[in-house]
């Protein structure tokens, strides 16, 4: 079982959250080319290692947050609140 620390509700079973995949910047839909937009929609780095992801606390506070997770070991770092930058120095949470 993967325990994901929601910044508002605390540790939650991953089954109770919605996993929204890799987090990356959305290009400006007004100025980007169709190719750029489709790359944003479909292409993924999919690393075997640390990955910044979007999660949605669907059966808790119903808020979105980001968190860094190691895709091989399942380790998690501190969740990232909106407006903050992710950092590896915040201490690992498991």
């Amino acid at each position: 079982m993967l325990l994901v620390p929601c910044p508002y509700c605390g540790p939650m079973n991953a089954a109770d959250l919605s996993y929204n995949g890799e987090s990356h910047r959305r290009p400006d839909p007004k100025t980007c080319t169709p190719e750029e937009w489709r790359s944003y929609l479909y292409l993924r780095e999919n690393p075997s290692g640390w990955l910044l992801e979007n999660w949605y606390c669907s059966s808790g506070c119903r808020r979105h947050f980001k968190i860094e997770r190691h895709t091989l070991t399942g380790e998690l770092r501190a969740p990232v609140l909106p407006g903050r930058k992710p950092g590896a120095t915040q201490g690992d949470m498991k």
């Binding site: 479909y42 993924r44 780095e45 999919n46 075997s48 895709t71």
Partner: peptide, 18 residues
């Protein structure tokens, strides 16, 4: 399983999640 990793080595990004 390792398709993304190997393709990234060649500089090709795939639309894949594992």
């Amino acid at each position: 399983g390792w398709a993304s990793q190997l393709s990234n080595m060649a500089g090709v990004t795939l639309p894949i999640t594992t």
